[in-house]
């Protein structure tokens, strides 16, 4: 009998795992909720740390998938029945699927910035999210304030919805720091005359080339990093944004006007992930991300035989880390299938 693996979620992790499993000779069905695979990567213009175009990675992953994987888009799983050694999936389309192994790669959602009421996102004209800025970069449309002005001063607010117990998210979203530095540089590339500020609590440049990028942001691009968490924003009469922050390095409150304020929104677990996890009785951490069987040694396995995890279902991930993780998951699934 042919062994089948169903991967739920066709983002970076799902695509990578699907290719690796197919390379290993496994039969794979990749289910994607949207019209196309690619996940959040489809919305991202350029990637840190080298600012290469996101589509390069997306194209690579897509080409790799080729025709060796059965990709089914616009599919939502309604129910999962766990059998003795296999799984029955009921799809919203009415179809059902049987599989021997199941990989959850349903990824993450971006934090809903409206929940930080004090920043006035979706209330003040010139407060946008990092995802919206990326979308602007990608569209190639001129970047202006909502009033059509070229921005003279741009601020980036770090940790929006992350490291924030009151928002329910105590964890660090890991990639916003470097995204903020990347986007700040990109704003300077477009507007060399603009003053660009990053408002941060710590700059967590955790991976290779990140710290160098931060250095470049300071040294080459004159980007100003001001340590403190923005406490509130308000709109001026000309729709510019006035923000209040403690300049923790002088221990004094600071007030500043910016033409455009970018909120670096963090990761939150997607409701879809949690819904599937509940159906499979998978343990969920206090941060509401899914728990693998062992954090260090079995990071793509779950406590439930035949169910595997890859990428941002387990917390904030960079693209490189998601790709590496998905490769590991594929090997673990392959090893598991051989035992059946």
């Amino acid at each position: 009998m042919t062994r089948t693996t169903v991967i739920i979620g066709g983002g970076v992790a799902g695509m990578t795992a699907a290719s690796r499993l197919a390379d290993l000779g496994e039969q794979v069905i990749l289910l994607e909720r949207e019209e196309q695979v690619g996940g959040h990567l489809r919305n991202w213009d350029r990637l840190f740390p080298n600012r290469r175009p996101g589509y390069e990675v997306l194209n690579y992953l897509t080409e790799e998938l080729g025709s060796k994987v059965d990709i089914r888009c616009l599919q939502t799983v309604t129910t999962i029945f766990s059998g003795e050694r296999d799984f029955q999936l009921q799809l919203a389309s009415g179809k059902s699927l049987r599989c021997d192994a199941l990989l959850l790669a349903t990824g993450f959602d971006l934090f809903d910035a409206r929940r930080k009421e004090e920043y006035g996102y979706a209330i003040y004209d010139n407060v946008i999210t990092s995802a919206e800025l990326e979308e602007l970069f990608r569209s190639g449309a001129p970047i202006t304030t909502r009033q059509g002005k070229v921005p003279k001063r741009v601020g980036f607010v770090h940790c929006v919805g992350s490291r924030d117990e009151k928002a329910g998210n105590l964890y660090c979203s890991k990639v916003c720091c470097v995204t903020g530095v990347k986007q700040a540089i990109e704003i300077k590339e477009l507007f060399p005359e603009a003053e660009v500020f990053g408002f941060y609590m710590d700059l967590r440049m955790f991976d290779r080339h990140f710290e160098e990028m931060y250095y470049e942001a300071q040294q080459k691009w004159d980007i100003n990093f001001l340590r403190g968490r923005v406490s509130e924003c308000a709109e001026n009469q000309d729709q510019s944004i006035v923000l209040k922050i403690e300049d923790t390095l002088t221990s004094r409150p600071l007030k500043m006007t910016v033409d455009l304020l970018v909120l670096l929104v963090g990761f939150v677990p997607s409701p879809e992930t949690l819904r599937l996890a509940a159906m499979l009785d998978l343990p969920v951490g206090e941060d509401r991300f899914l728990e693998p069987a062992d954090e260090h040694t079995k990071s793509t396995l779950t406590v439930k035989p035949g169910v595997f995890l890859a990428g941002a279902v387990k917390g904030p991930f960079s693209i490189s880390n998601a790709i590496a993780d998905a490769g590991t998951a594929a090997l673990q699934i392959h090893a598991y299938l051989k035992t059946l």
Binding site: D247, T250, R252, P253, L254, K255, M256, T257
Partner: peptide, 10 residues
């Protein structure tokens, strides 16, 4: 009237 002690960056 107390003077403001904040840094008025603008």
């Amino acid at each position: 009237v107390h003077k403001e002690r904040l840094i008025d960056y603008d």
